[in-house]
Amino acid sequence: MALAHYGILDTPREPQFDRIVRLAAHLLRTPVATINFVDQARQWSKASVGLNGRTADRQDSFCAWTILNDQPTVIENAPADPRFSRNPMVTGDPHIHMYAGAPLIMPSGQRIGTLCVTDHQPHPLSPSDLQALQDLAALVVTELELRSYQQRLSLSLAAQREHSSELQRSLEQAQALTGIHQLFDLDLDPRDALLAVTGLLGGALDADQAGFSVTQGDSVTVDLSPVRAATAIDTTGETAQLITALGLHGARSPLYIDDLPALARARGVPASDHIAQIAVIPAGHDPHGASHLLVTRRKDHPVAHWRPSDRNLLEATGRAAQQMLDHQQARGTQA
């Protein structure tokens, strides 16, 4: 959420950030300098010198280590470091030997990324080099703050209201996620926990229906309930049948559909057009089967698609459900 505050991910290159990486490469005499941001799953580069790719998996990211501390992280010999010796960025391009990164620390204290430099050969750094790296990292944060401020100034009154609504929604979803984690921490039967969680989840997403599916061998159970006030047409039973007919309960990764009737027509499955959107999120696998979270919205819903904030909440809930199952299995094994 702190990173989302700046709206910086997946944006085009901007001159002020390009200037900083050029200056970092020049001052520290390295072939590579990069401004990276680290989110839940990846490292994304806003600006770089000497590097072509813009994205790397978080598990392969040097910068994911750097954001764990306020001070710079220096790896003098990556091939000899057991944490990184098999890293694809060490064994392959850009063949990192030396890495130095300074965290990008928001005024509120969150570490959201790094300004880092690398070299493919030994490259000792002096204390003054590291101080320069920290100073430039602070300049990146200043540019982020200025960019954010300028964006806010450019908003019209209507856009400001929308922005306020988005922040409020983010707060409500963060509160819902806190409640979801608390429910999963209770010693509940997995089915009871999922039932309680889907109620919170559906409300936070302003959904029309929410529930889950459980697949055990060839058996599929779909438990779906209305979330919003009752409407003239109750489509929960129809939606449950459609989920099964389309095989959506077998999704191996998060699935977001904004036009469910079109998908049904493409696959030759009869369906009304009452439900437009559906999200199917893996919520746990164990030796006995798999569970998925299910959330739907009707065709007349004021939100016409699954927003990034919706997806973040859904996927965080799915991960929390998997952790709950893992903990229960571990307790069962120990018992």
Rank of each mutant, 00 (worst) to 15 (best):
P79A: 14
V303M: 14
F17W: 01
E166T: 13
Q209R: 10
L130F: 06
N69M: 02
K299Q: 09
I180E: 01
G53H: 15
C116L: 03
S126V: 00
A271G: 00
S108R: 12
E76F: 03
A2S: 11
A33S: 10
M89C: 00
R29T: 11
A232K: 04
H95R: 15
H123D: 01
T55N: 14
Q131H: 11
Q16K: 14
L177G: 05
Y6N: 04
T215V: 01
Q216M: 00
P12C: 01
N312F: 00
Q71P: 06
R152H: 13
S225Q: 13
G217W: 09
Q334E: 11
L188I: 12
Q59M: 03
G332I: 08
E238Y: 02
Y256F: 15
T178Q: 15
A232H: 10
V197H: 07
E172P: 08
Q168V: 11
A330K: 07
I20T: 11
S156T: 15
A251Q: 13
R152Q: 14
S126L: 05
Y6H: 06
D223G: 04
L314D: 04
E172K: 13
V38I: 14
R252T: 05
D185E: 10
Q40Y: 03
H327T: 09
R58M: 05
A264K: 08
H163P: 02
A229R: 08
L246F: 01
L23M: 14
T178K: 15
T118S: 11
D10C: 01
T231N: 12
A78V: 01
D258M: 00
G332M: 12
G247R: 02
L200Y: 10
A137V: 00
P107H: 06
L9M: 15
L146A: 13
L155Q: 13
I257G: 08
L183Y: 03
A210W: 12
Y256V: 05
H120L: 00
A158Q: 14
M98D: 03
D206E: 15
A210K: 09
V140W: 01
N36R: 04
